[in-house]
């Protein structure tokens, strides 16, 4: 199971890198979304995958799932949700102001104001 998850995280990263290297801002944002998904999947996998056990640690309980990776992933998801939303709004504003969503075409205007 861990192997499959690791490969899945790898494929997600691969797609993310491909998308981030493109010129359109929207594709880049989708790429960053995929990249954070890959990171979250990796956290889950590294925490150890077990099924059928509750996330408790108590005397006498031998079978338990580590609750920490789930808490971490939840936090990271919330953060990446917020950042992606901000990124989208910013990209939209930039599209309105600069009239293009192509990073190539944005280049070379007034760098030194």
């Amino acid at each position: 199971m861990e192997i499959i998850m690791a490969i899945a995280a790898g494929i997600l990263t691969m797609c993310a890198v491909y998308l981030i290297l493109s010129k359109s801002v929207l594709r880049i944002i989708i790429g960053t979304g995929l990249l954070s998904h890959a990171a979250h999947l990796l956290v889950m996998t590294m925490g150890g995958l077990k099924t059928g056990a509750a996330p408790v640690l108590k005397d006498g309980v031998t079978q338990y799932t580590d609750p920490l990776p789930q808490a971490l992933v939840l936090t990271a998801i919330v953060i990446s949700f917020g950042v992606t939303a901000f990124f989208l709004v910013l990209a939209y504003r930039a599209y309105q102001e600069l009239g293009t969503d192509n990073l190539e075409e944005m280049k070379g205007t007034d760098t030194h104001d």
Partner: peptide, 27 residues
Amino acid sequence: PAQLRESLKYLLINVISSALFVMTVAF
């Protein structure tokens, strides 16, 4: 306009480095 353009890059760099941060913590 120049600010919007540069912030896009700034954001992208930091989003990528944040994702790397999570991966590093995972390892």
